[in-house]
């Protein structure tokens, strides 16, 4: 089932299915390595607030990325 990243529980690992939003949002996420198909690990989140993710399928250690709530409502993921 596809849900926005903002609603994922911390600790889960999810796959990015779709990014909705303007080209600006899109390209910003892409340059950070968040693209369709990537596996993200949700480290922690604040309800209705930002989410901290890590790119789980990168080689080496992925720095954590904070995504604001609005951004997370545009990233659709499913349980991986």
């Amino acid at each position: 089932m596809m849900i926005p990243l903002a609603l994922v529980r911390p600790g889960s690992t999810v796959r990015v299915i779709e990014i909705r939003g303007g080209r600006g949002v899109y390209s910003k996420l892409r340059s950070l390595g968040i693209i369709e198909g990537k596996i993200l690990k949700v480290i922690s989140s604040i309800n209705g607030g930002p989410v901290i993710v890590e790119i789980a399928d990168s080689i080496g250690s992925s720095p954590r990325i904070v995504l604001g709530f609005g951004m997370c409502m545009k990233i659709f993921v499913e349980e991986a």
């Binding site: 996420l29 950070l32 720095p63 904070v66 604001g68 609005g70």
Partner: peptide, 12 residues
């Protein structure tokens, strides 16, 4: 205008 969206890297 809408916010551009908050994205920030959180280094170790």
């Amino acid at each position: 205008g809408p916010s551009a969206g908050f994205v920030m890297e959180m280094p170790p």
